[in-house]
Structure formats: C-alpha cells, structure tokens
Write a protein that binds this DNA or RNA. Structure first.
Lengths: 307, 307
DNA sequence: TGAAATGTGAAACTTCTTTTCATATAATAG
DNA sequence: CTATTATATGAAAAGAAGTTTCACATTTCA
C-alpha cells in the first residue's frame, strides 16, 4: 500500500494549521476552558490529565483508558475535541505544560475554621494568583486578535455587567475612558438594556457575567444580537448560552470551586482580562497612526488611576 | 506470544534502572556523549536530533527515517542504544530538553511596542500576579487582627473610594453585603462626604486610595477623624497623609512602576486585601456565635456572586 | 583473501491509535 | 407519555506507528 508517503504530507499540513490556531495556549488551560462542555466520561479523562499532567503525558492511550475506566475510542475523540490532531500530539503538549508548571506550587488550599488570620490572608492571595494563572493559560491569541480588532474599529464600545460583574464592567469602563474610544457603561439594568437597543453592527459590546446564566444579562445579549452588535463575552463557563452568543469569548477560570463561591476570584481574572484588552488596544491603535513609542507612553501616562 | 504483558513490566524496570544510572542527563548531552561511538548512519540521526531537537521531537519514526535517509529499524536501534526503552520515550525526553534550552522569560518584562498580543496578555497577567505577591508579603498579622476587630464590632462599616478606587470600594461593599454587618457605600463624592459626617466612634470606615493624596479623599478622612471613626486605609504609599491618619493601614504594592501607571495593578491588590478582610470577618464573627463550620458554609454559600 | 563481526534495510510482527458501527442514553417534539 | 431524533459510548475492525527478525552487505582482522 502506498499510503505511507501521503500520510507524511498530511501531517505536515496538520502541524501548519495547528501552529496558526492555538499559539501560546497551554494544554491545561485548554482543558480547563472546555471542561464544562465535556461529557461525563470525558470529564473523567480531563480530570486525570489536570491532576497529574506529568503522569498522563507518559501513558499510552490504553493505559489512560484503563486508568480512567473509559474506552480508548473516547479518549481519542477527546483529544481531537481539544483540537489536537492525534493522541501523540496531546501527550506531547501535556508534557510541555507539565514541565513548565512543575516548579510552582499549584495546590489550592482550603480555608479552614481554625486558620490564623495570616493564613487566611495568604490562602486568599494564593487563590487569586492561581486563578490569574489559570485564566492566563486559557487565553488564546486568535481570540485576542479578533477582540482587539472589534474594539478598535467600533464606533462605540459599551460595557455590560450586573451584580458582581458590575464591578468588572465599571472597571473596564474606567480603563477604556483613557483611550480615544467612545465608551459607555451604566450600572442600572434598564439603562443597560436601553443602551443595548441603541447599538448597531458598527458597535462593540463587552459583556461580563460570571455564570453566563443571569436572566437580565441574557436579555441584554439577545437585544445586542438582534442588532448585529459584535459581542465580546467574559465569563467562567464556556458552555453557557451567553458564551454561545458571543463573537469572542474569554474565560475567567478558577481551579477550585468547592468551598466558597468562585465568583470572587473570577472577578479579578475578569478585570485582568479587561486590562489585557486595554493594553493591547492602546499599543495597537496608536502604533497604526504614528511611529510612536512616545505617543503610547503619553496615552498610558494619562491612564493614571487617581484617588 | 504472550510477551506483551511482560513488556509493560519491562518498561517499569527500565525506567527504574535508567533513573538510577543516568540521573539528570539531558538527551542532547547523552547523544553528544555517545556520538563518536555511533555508526555512520546513526550519526546522521544523531546530527539531526542535535541540530533541531524541537523539530525531531515531533516527528514519527517514519518521518525521521525519511528525513535522515535511514531505515526505521536503525532509528529504533539507535534510541535503544541511547538507553531509552522506546522511540516515544526518546522523543518525549528530547522535547523536554529542547524546552529547557529555550530561553525562559522569567523576569519582569516591560511591555514593548512590538509585542504580540499573546505576549501583552502574558505580561499583563504576570504583572498582576507579582503585585499580588508583593502585597501579600507586606501584610502583617497584627494589622489584620486590629482591622478585623474594628470591622466586627462596628455598628456600621462604610466604604470610601473615588476615581479608580471607586471600583475597589464598590467591590468591598458588594462583598460585605453578604455578611450580617451594616454596610454602606455610594460612588458620589458629596454623598460620601455626608456619610462621613454622620459617622461616630462606634463605626468603621474603610478608605481606599491609590496615591493617598487625592484631595477629596483627604477631606473625607478629616471629617471621619473629627468624628473619631476607626479608619482602615488601603493605599500604595505608607507615607501619605492618608496613611498617617489611619488606625490600620494596608499597602497594595507593585514591583514594577515604570512603564505604565501602577494604579491598575494596585486595584486588584486592593481588592484582594478586601477579600482577605471579608474572609476573616466571615470566619471569625461566626465562630464566636455558634460552633459553626456549617453556619460559615451557609454564609459563604449566600456569597454567591451572581450574573 | 576468507572468516568473523558488525551494520543495514525490507518485511514480518507487535503494539498503539483511530474509525466504524451497533447500541444505549438523553433530549425533543408530537 | 411515546415516538423520534440527536448524542454518547464501547467493542471491534482497520489503520499507523514502532520493533524485531532475517538475509545480505560491508568492514575488520588474521
């Protein structure tokens, strides 16, 4: 059979495609980002990979299958869903990120009743740091690029966020006020809804919602959708209706969900995503107009947060 | 033949032995060390692996065979001579050392004009994480204890913050709304000032200000002081008048100040300080009233950030 | 130069991975 | 509540990848 030669060629193309799509996104981030869209059995696989990436990276597909109690077929499908072209590529990538993580302390300590105050504070900070790290790993350049383009070209950029996410939305509004862009935000739901109704396909909406299931937020998104507005979503659940409606979705992630509401940690992740978008917007939009490190600096200087 | 099972076992032994014998020797080092003992064809393989470890690590044995012009059999023998139990283990190890050799960006990078979007995002997250770390290190248990006592015993806890710090104040208000405490916050300066005027020595004020030099904020603090209110300050400058006026001061720190305003990074540090205070308040106040892990959990459940 | 040792690739063989297919399960419509 | 459709899953077939055997070529050394 002469399929062997052909096959080599196929592989090369594969790699090429992959290179373009998922730059700088860690395997673990990818898994976390897709976790809630996975089926029950696939979650078992994902869990093991998240818990012991180094070990899993050395397993054959059979070993992983029997370790998780699922079939090899499921695993093969799983890695493809994760956007790897085959199992080997997956373990390879896993080994990579495992190696990078090793030196760090990734453990998520539970807060306990008897903890001293200093311990409580330390754990709180550690949670936050880990959330940021997880969120960072799940970002992918493609999404960032698409988001920045939409933001820069928008006639108006509006922020939407209710409840806990109102804080993030307000922060985003505050940040982007320092750019030349037209930005808007109002904490009141009714006004947010009216604002949504006024927007058009030339505008861009940044919608923040932890759960992605809040009724009011969804109402706003439907209105935006009806008007053809470009929607950028920041949420914690990639499977939510909200995430589905978005042109671009960014995930704020937390390793640990059990003890307390993750919403609190996701808040700072959301804000840091906004911060990234802000920095990218500033650096990109100004570099198109003038040959301008100085100009950029000026803009950033104005950025001075005061109070 | 029933050797398959045995083989798996064989692998385990191999690893064991290998681990003992050749600890911490990089794949590339191994190849170099054996290079001149290799046959002519094997050298071709070795050469390619040395020159492009990263590329070779992603090849299948067939691809490597055709790339070097030798048979797969030879390569299989080659990796065994290198003391790996199979080709897969070899490529894995090669990938590892290739990754290690790649220059790691550990430091505190400046954002630069030419940075890719992914780089900008990574740096932004790194900054944030470093800020949190620095802030955490600067906390001290004494201050935490005094702050928590004041908060728990206060008749009313009011949050004050203007400009960028309004976001943090709002966040704090949001969080503490989930406790049984009496909390208040309003974004408007005049109302904050009036609120300050209404407070007494039985109350506690949490004042957030990045610079600690904002006029309006200082006005509020003077008013609070006049009324004998216990003042907890969260700021970035311990020397400011604001910090001096406080009963307890927490510092939000940033490692890096140069390129852009640190205000943005201090924001998430401030919020995480607030988060710590919140957790401590919840854990402490409830543990005094009931023997209550359950109660705590309930409270925290209510804490669900929604939207 | 010839015998032994070593190196090598083709092909057989084993192991690993992917795909197919039949079945089970959940979701949806009537 | 049932019929229908979509989705998920594992067993097993098919397909690749990797290893070993074996026959032949080359080198080494007497």
């Amino acid at each position: 059979m002469k399929c062997c030669k052909m096959f080599t060629k196929g592989n090369l193309f594969k790699n090429y495609r992959k290179g373009a799509a998922t730059i700088a996104r860690s395997t673990i981030g990818k898994i976390r980002g897709t976790y809630d869209q996975l089926s029950r059995t696939e979650k078992k696989v994902a869990q093991l990979a998240l818990d012991n990436p180094a070990v899993v990276s050395e397993m054959t597909i059979k070993e992983l299958a029997s370790a998780t109690g699922v079939s090899t077929a499921t695993i093969s499908r799983f890695v493809k869903r994760m956007d790897y072209s085959n199992y080997r590529e997956f373990t390879m990538a896993l080994a990579h990120t495992a190696a990078e993580m090793t030196p760090q302390q990734n453990s998520f300590p539970e807060l306990a009743e008897g903890d001293s105050l200093a311990t409580i504070a330390n754990k709180t900070f550690r949670f936050s740091i880990n959330s940021l790290r997880a969120t960072n790993e799940a970002l992918n350049e493609d999404d960032l690029a698409r988001a920045v383009i939409k933001i820069i070209n928008a006639k108006t950029v509006a922020f939407f966020g209710l409840g806990g996410s109102a804080v993030a939305a307000l922060d985003g509004y505050h940040k982007f006020l320092r750019t030349p862009l037209n930005v808007t935000y109002h904490p009141d739901y009714d006004i947010q809804l009216m604002q949504a109704a006024r927007m058009t396909a030339q505008d861009c909406a940044i919608v923040i919602s932890h759960s992605g299931r809040n009724h009011e937020t969804l109402e706003i998104v439907r209105e935006l959708k009806r008007n053809g507005v470009a929607i950028i979503v920041i949420t914690s659940y990639s499977g939510s209706e909200l995430a589905q409606a978005a042109a671009v979705t960014f995930l704020s992630l937390t390793d640990e969900v059990k003890y307390r509401s993750e919403g609190m940690y996701s808040l700072i992740s959301q804000m840091t995503i906004l911060d990234s978008l802000f920095m990218m917007t500033v650096l990109r939009s100004s570099s198109r107009t003038k040959p301008v490190l100085t100009r950029v600096r000026d803009v950033i200087e104005q950025t001075r947060y005061d109070s």
